[in-house]
């Protein structure tokens, strides 16, 4: 019976090892989003395609949408772009684009040459809305329900793998939303 004491360090080691093992699978860059469950912050920003027109948070009311933060200076956005185009075409996902800290002319050119997956694109040149959303780099994608409440956030490229999770949540929200 006395020998059981000898196993205490071993037990501690096993406990610690299991704890640390769990940590190995976690993405050190993943941050919990602070804004999940909260409405999109109020904003009023210019439309990229319609001169003089302003887009506000009301754009999210009544539809389940994705808000995609992108920019022409962002290489990962170029990687992500074809997938967004496919989403808009094949699944008819409503994607709102936020051109983040970018210039209008190159942005328009980008959409012309690479295809435009966005129902509406607005520009946040100063990063004001970006700051309110807690954006810390592009691309970032938010899933927003028909009440304009943020339901999920993904930092980084949205691809097949990410869409498996985000997409099922999207379809779930879509099913909950009454058809107008």
């Amino acid at each position: 019976m006395k020998n059981i004491k000898l196993f205490i360090p071993f037990a501690i080691f096993v406990g610690l090892a299991l704890f640390l093992l769990k940590g190995l699978d976690r993405d050190p860059n993943a941050l919990p989003s602070a804004l999940i469950g909260e409405p999109v912050p109020a904003f009023s920003l210019p439309d990229l395609h319609v001169p003089g027109a302003l887009v506000s948070e009301d754009i999210f009311k009544g539809h389940v949408s994705l808000l995609n933060v992108w920019a022409t200076w962002c290489p990962s956005c170029r990687v992500e772009h074809p997938f967004l185009v496919a989403l808009a075409e094949n699944e008819a996902v409503r994607i709102i684009g936020m051109d983040y800290k970018d210039e209008d002319e190159p942005a328009r050119r980008w959409l012309q040459t690479l295809g435009n997956p966005y129902a509406v694109t607005f520009t946040d040149q100063e990063g004001k809305l970006g700051l309110d959303l807690g954006v810390f780099g592009a691309p970032e994608t938010y899933l927003i329900d028909s009440q304009g409440v943020i339901r999920a956030k993904h930092v980084g490229v949205v691809d097949e793998r990410v869409w498996q999770k985000l997409g099922s949540l999207y379809r779930q929200l879509l099913a909950e939303t009454p058809v107008e």
Partner: peptide
């Protein structure tokens, strides 16, 4: 800042 970027 915490409201936007979390406790992080």
């Amino acid at each position: 800042l915490v409201h936007r970027y979390g406790d992080f």
